[in-house]
Amino acid sequence: MHRIVVLGAGYTGMSAASHLVGRTRRRDDVRITVVNASARFTERLRLHQVASGQELAELNIPDLLPDVDLVCGWVTAVDVDARAVRVDDERVVEYDTLVYALGSVTDTSSVPGADEHAYTLDHAESLAHRLSGMDSGTVVVCGSGLTGVEAAAEIAEQHPGLDVVLLGREEPGAGMGPKAKAHLHDTLGRLGVRVHSGDIGKVLPDAVRLVGGETIAADVVLWTSGVRVPRLARELEADERGRIVTDPALRSVSHPDVYVVGDAAAVRLGFGVLHGTCQSGMPTGVHAAVSIVRELNGKAPKPFRFGYYHTPVSLGRHDAVVQFTKPDGAPRRLSLTGRRAVWYKETVSSSPWPTFRRMTRMPRSGAIWPHGGRYTR
């Protein structure tokens, strides 16, 4: 019996697990185990909606993967020499092949006070509870990347009595073309979001202090600036950001029985290292599953190939912008705004779960992903 263990059941881990089920359902020599913190699937694409107080549908992992062994618990260590995973309740899960899909968490360690005084989308429910008790006040969203933009717009729309400030080093929509960027800024202005530029030096209990000394008063601070990858397997070679370095087939360069996918992987392609998004993460999960089955059949895995396709950004529930991109992520001239962009973004956000279900029933060698990019086996 070949034991395949998938660590993490986010978008990437579920892509790997569901595709493994589809590829091995006629085999009796494979056992698949998924280790995840809970039996519920977290829609990270929608955490900004949760933070603003909206309720999402309940999606349960066992409903999709009834024949897979699900171990609920936090992974505390991975012993790659013993091929064993340790869970917080002292259980040990052994494997022959490991899919490392534990992803990343918001990095609150880079700026003093962020860990003590700021909320993150990793705990979106707590932020929603705090905002629900506020009729007025200032919410400062730290980080002007796309996660910060979506969160600021959602909070401003759902809580019009609050003053929302989007604070970061870069201009919001910096990687977009002129049309998409202009629409993004116009919509933030219409929603009442104030954009402020600056380097954050410290988060205080009631304010955010910039490096130059300027202070912005804040009743609530949401931190969306940067992510980090927890180091649970020190033996696996990693880069300066903690991401595990992979070979072209997405295997750890130091331990080829470990496939690393999603945010946890440092995957180098012709245009550079993949940045952590659902758009690139799901194809890495599928590629790992296909490669594992190839190895079970005595074949060598093929190199991973991928190109970006789009950058869809929600701006509340009634507006959005979609910037189509070149394979390396650079903006094309084409973009969508307004109602068409809302429909497009909603389709993207809703697509993973039905996609996982199709994978368990109808495996394919390649796909055009709703999240963008063409994955080629």
Rank of each mutant, 00 (worst) to 15 (best):
T106V: 12
T106Y: 03
D107M: 10
D107K: 09
S110M: 14
V111E: 05
P112N: 13
D115G: 06
E116T: 09
H117A: 04
Y119E: 04
T120I: 04
H123W: 13
A124N: 02
E125K: 09
S126G: 09
S126M: 14
L127I: 09
A128D: 03
H129S: 11
R130V: 08
R130Q: 10
G133P: 02
T138N: 08
V140A: 07
V140W: 03
V141T: 05
C142I: 11
G143F: 10
G143K: 11
S144E: 06
S144P: 04
S144H: 11
V149W: 06
A151T: 11
A152L: 13
A153N: 03
E154Q: 15
A156S: 06
L162N: 01
D163V: 07
V164N: 00
V165D: 00
L166A: 05
G168E: 03
G168H: 07
E171K: 14
E171L: 13
P172I: 09
G173A: 09
A174M: 12
G175A: 12
G177S: 05
P178M: 13
K179C: 00
K179E: 08
K181H: 12
L184Q: 00
L184E: 00
D186C: 06
T187A: 06
G189M: 10
G189S: 08
G189D: 06
R190V: 07
L191G: 00
L191H: 03
V193G: 00
V195R: 02
H196F: 10
S197Q: 14
S197T: 13
S197N: 13
D199L: 15
G201T: 10
K202W: 12
V208Y: 02
V208H: 03
V211K: 13
V211P: 00
G212W: 12
G213M: 10
G213A: 09
